[in-house]
Design a protein around this nucleic acid. Structure first.
Lengths: 257, 257
DNA sequence: CTAGAACTGTGTACAACATAAACCAAGTGC
DNA sequence: GCACTTGGTTTATGTTGTACACAGTTCTAG
């Protein structure tokens, strides 16, 4: 990647994310647009992962030279950020949801759905705080869900960070387990076999009593061979844990001292 | 990075992680060792982040040629995985801990401590399931903490994944917020200013009522300018939420129908 | 004891990468 | 129409991971 990026310009990045370009009047008409470039990048990432997205590749896809992209986007880092922003469109919350818990469940599930459909989004290195319209809208939705609880802004943000953390972290772990083959170029079967051999070879009851017991009881099977649901049930399981935790916090907080 | 890695060899990676080399008898004595190489890589990452770790750089640090490293390590991907494994040493659990909750709290805090001291570990792309001795030992510790609850192996694993997800996700968000400057090369102040301007410009009460209210109430301050504690309090807050969730799950699970 | 096999470190080479700089043509405002 | 701004291209630079061939070293089989 050569030098990557010497310096970032937050203001320029924000302009791009929120699509408020100064709209130049002078020079020749632009043949491309930021949107086209971002969409091309997304298409490549959807098909072949984010590693396949290079400036050259995007430009080729559009039929222009590599350097032409730099007239629209300051750096590859910004392009990736724009891709994530555009890829994670936020659906409007349906009307039927009642109560913070139902709303947050919906929110978390929608959020993890983005990662499910655009797994590459998790591979884009996170360099700056969430700044794009969709990211902000997503925050707003979660906060709206919590609004009815009467908590302070700080408390609501704390809960949001905790929940986001869970969602992102779980998605990342799940994605890693599910996509070993795509990530390493080595067949899933080879990984499974190696992993199994590792477990039986190194996980002896002396040093790892609990793990060893679980392994022999075969409770590990569903993790060693993740199903097509991308650990969907597992995500829901953990989500309810977190929601339960929030509920208990509310009970304690609201109950008379 | 040219081609990065065409194919990974899980078995070779496992051999390296668990340090079970076939120990060759024939050729010249090796002047280097895997351990030295990994340590050199860790030193660089500690000082300048994982982006500064290149094969050339590591070799230079050791006084050898780039290609000599490939006699010890099959690829840079493996080197990074070894670095993470070695960097995340697992302390023995202290004796004083009583009850699963206290143990899990200790566990989660120790785990996030690793990320706190080696922030680069979060930047290493996660390509394979946890396989190294330290990763496994960490799993074992968490499972041991849960052992007393009498849950099934599957349930314990579900809880482990949820908790790990929270820990990793939160650490990643916190690290992003705390290290913008190091990551982008742009001063923290410039980011704060840009972010603040974004909030006031685009977050209008019409579209983002809740967020707008919180921003004007200044509940955002602590997030816009993360303190030295690396959102420590915030991590603890979310952790208790998750632990509460687990507790409630246990109560429900164990109570007579 | 000697021939070859196994192994180490090095040098060279290559393809891919992000991006800087100079350039010309296209369009606008004065 | 002239200066200035802008868009797309060309060319060039420095870095990256790693394939490959080679020369020297150490052990082992005969």
């Amino acid at each position: 990647m050569a030098t990557d990026q010497r310096q970032a310009d937050p203001n320029r990045t924000l302009e791009l994310l929120w699509d408020v370009q100064p709209a130049p009047t002078r020079g020749p008409k632009p043949a491309l647009s930021v949107r086209q470039i971002v969409d091309a990048g997304i298409a490549i990432a959807d098909a072949e992962g984010v590693a396949a997205v290079s400036m050259r590749r995007v430009a080729d896809e559009l039929g222009y030279t590599t350097m032409s992209l730099y007239r629209y986007v300051p750096s590859k880092t910004d392009l990736l950020e724009l891709m994530v922003e555009h890829a994670s469109e936020v659906p409007e919350a349906p009307d039927g949801l009642t109560g913070w818990r139902e709303k947050l469940r919906w929110w978390a599930t929608r959020t993890v759905d983005v990662y499910r459909h655009r797994r590459w989004a998790l591979d884009v290195p996170l360099n700056s705080p969430p700044m794009g319209p969709n990211q902000i809208k997503r925050m707003e939705q979660a906060l709206e869900a919590l609004d009815e609880t009467g908590l302070s802004g700080g408390e609501m943000l704390g809960i949001l960070v905790a929940l986001s953390g869970y969602v992102r972290g779980h998605a990342q772990l799940a994605s890693t387990l599910a996509d070993v083959e795509a990530r390493t170029g080595t067949p899933q079967a080879a990984w499974d076999q190696a992993y199994g051999r590792m477990l039986t070879t190194f996980v002896n009851p002396a040093e790892h009593p609990t793990l060893a017991r679980i392994v022999t009881q075969d409770g590990f099977a569903s993790y060693a061979e993740p199903d097509d649901e991308w650990l969907g049930d597992d995500f829901a399981f953990g989500l309810e844990l977190v929601l339960d935790g929030i509920e208990r916090y509310l009970e304690r907080r609201m109950s008379p001292e």
